[in-house]
Design a binder for these strands. Structure first.
Length: 482
RNA sequence: GGUCCCAUCGUCUAGAGGCCCAGGACGUAGCCCUCUCAAGGCUAAAACACGGGUUCGAAUCCCGUUGGGACCGCCA
């Protein structure tokens, strides 16, 4: 049995030194899709061994982000800080077997040597001066003396290491290039390259799917897997996500966290759909349901080159998903945005059916939930504020009589519906021999404050008879006063 | 500097030697629809980085050049 035939076990292993990043989210997504496609296990593991930079807050943010995206995990979240004794025992084992050694070089000394090497244009590699000189006894003595030593892993110094990457194929590394990396710091805590391997071994990970910024770490990790006596997992290194200037996506390119996109009014499905297409494709298809993604996903269709993050396309997908979403669902999602924009009070409830109807009229005009909430204001608020240009262009003597007549006629109709309202409009424009626009635009300004809105009959119906008449009255007064 | 990776429209991509004077999508422009704005429909401009091979034939395979990126930590 080879690795590829085993029950798939994959993991997403973020470090909580920041929010869940767009790039991390895509890595998580690909892991998730791979696991779901193969009916395998998806594990969430928090790599928090950097105690100075990891925070509880970020751990929560990552977990919330994963949940929001709908990427559910089957095991975990495991935390590496809970597993220090595990790493320690593996490190001791390696030391006992002569596969690791203690290093007494101080961080300052090492940094100094690195600088010198850099200045001389030499490779930045640990020179291995502690590699062969330590015996177990000497180590114990040094401990007793209170000297803190780090533990380094003995890398092979000749030959080559081949990484068989599922996306990139065969990649060969010369072992001379490999550094004897530190696996346990002098304070006794384990380092990243060691903990990943130990955890992957312990959790029986079959496929390591991660960003290709880890590609250069892979040969080193392969030797650690081997030293631990574990079969090497299969690797898939994903191309990076870049900013518009083609450098690694970072804060200066704008919003980079999943949370930020949530707050900007994006739908999780839109983000997922956008992210999945950044590097992966299925023919010409652009829009996918989750089930389709799970069904179609495979490494074969993942590209090798880095992708530039394009907010415009995300926006298009988001508007697409908003249009496709049920209004009833959007009615729930938009509430926090209405509160934030001060359109409703916290705890204030709106008639659900009415709100859904209002949203149906606005969906195709909203690229985000923020925009949707903003447009909703003229349906919900008691009053509207006029856009100055719109006011001077449409609320004037030319429209005054039409508005008065409209108001009178609307007052009399029994049913305040699109059909009845339209009849009234038609009667008036025929009588005065004007185009619909001559009446619709002034009414639009009166009802919404501006010149853009859904169909005017629809707007009237949703605003309702009482408010419509009130706003028409106010518009007529405004004309009179100007 | 060393190592590794990558290279099709502005951007995401299709393309597994002939189906490609390169297809789709976002964006851009124009037109249609129309009470406005959208949505939708149609149309247009827009790319195989360069140079050598291999081959009857190359976007596709090989080599080189150039360009970009990542990593080289007692960070992850």
């Amino acid at each position: 049995m080879t690795r590829g035939d085993e029950q798939v076990r994959v993991r997403f292993a973020p470090s909580p030194t920041g929010q869940l990043h767009i790039g991390g989210a895509r890595t998580a997504l690909y892991n998730w899709l791979y696991a779901r496609h193969h009916k395998g296990t998806f594990i969430l593991r928090i790599e928090d061994t950097d105690r100075t930079r990891s925070t509880e807050e970020y751990i929560n943010a990552i977990i919330e982000g994963m949940k929001w995206l709908g990427l559910d995990w089957d095991e975990g979240p495991y935390r590496q800080t809970d597993r220090f004794d595990v790493y320690k025992s593996y490190a001791d084992k390696l030391f006992a077997e002569g596969k690791a050694y203690y290093c007494y070089c101080s961080p300052e000394k090492l940094e100094q040597r690195r600088q010198e090497a850099l200045a001389q244009g030499k490779p930045l590699k640990y020179d291995g001066r502690c590699r062969n000189r330590e015996s177990v006894q000497e180590f114990k003595d040094s401990r007793i003396q209170g000297k803190n030593a780090a533990i380094r892993f003995k890398m092979p110094q000749e030959g080559e290491t081949v990484v068989h990457d599922l996306i990139r194929g065969r990649i060969v590394f010369e072992n001379v290039q490999l550094d004897d990396l530190i696996i346990i710091r002098s304070d006794g805590t384990p380092t990243y390259n060691f903990t990943v391997v130990v955890d992957d071994v312990d959790m029986n990970i079959t496929h390591v799917i991660r960003g290709d910024d880890h590609l250069n770490n892979t040969p080193k990790q392969i030797h650690i897997y081997a030293a631990l006596g574990y079969e090497i997992p299969l690797f898939a290194h994903l191309p990076m996500i870049l900013g518009a200037d083609k450098t690694r996506l970072s804060k200066r390119h704008g919003a980079t966290s999943v949370t930020a996109y949530k707050e900007m009014g994006f739908l999780p499905d839109a983000l997922v759909n956008y992210l999945v297409r950044l590097g992966w494709s299925h023919g010409d298809q652009e829009v996918f349901t989750r089930d389709e993604l799970i069904q179609y996903f495979s490494f074969e269709n993942i590209g090798k080159s880095a992708a530039v993050f394009n907010p415009e396309k995300l926006l298009w997908l988001n508007s697409h998903y908003i249009i496709k979403s049920a209004s009833e669902k959007l009615a729930e999602l938009v509430i926090p945005f209405l509160i934030k924009q001060g359109i409703i009070e916290e705890g204030q409830s709106l008639n659900k059916e009415w709100l859904s109807k209002a949203i149906t009229s606005l969906k195709e005009r909203s690229k985000t939930l923020i925009e949707l909430a903003h447009l909703l204001r003229y349906y919900i608020a008691e009053d509207v504020e006029y856009n100055e240009k719109a006011k001077s262009k449409f609320l004037n003597e030319k429209s005054r009589d039409l508005l008065i007549e409209l108001k009178d006629k609307l007052t009399d109709i029994r049913e305040f519906s699109v059909e009845e309202i339209e009849k009234v409009f038609r009667t008036i424009i025929e009588k005065h021999n004007v185009k619909l626009g001559n009446l619709a635009q002034p009414v639009r300004v009166a009802l919404t404050g501006g010149t853009e809105s859904p169909g005017i009959f629809e707007v009237l119906e949703i605003v309702g008879k009482e408010k419509t008449l009130k706003r028409l009255e106010k518009a007529i007064e405004t004309i009179g006063n100007s």
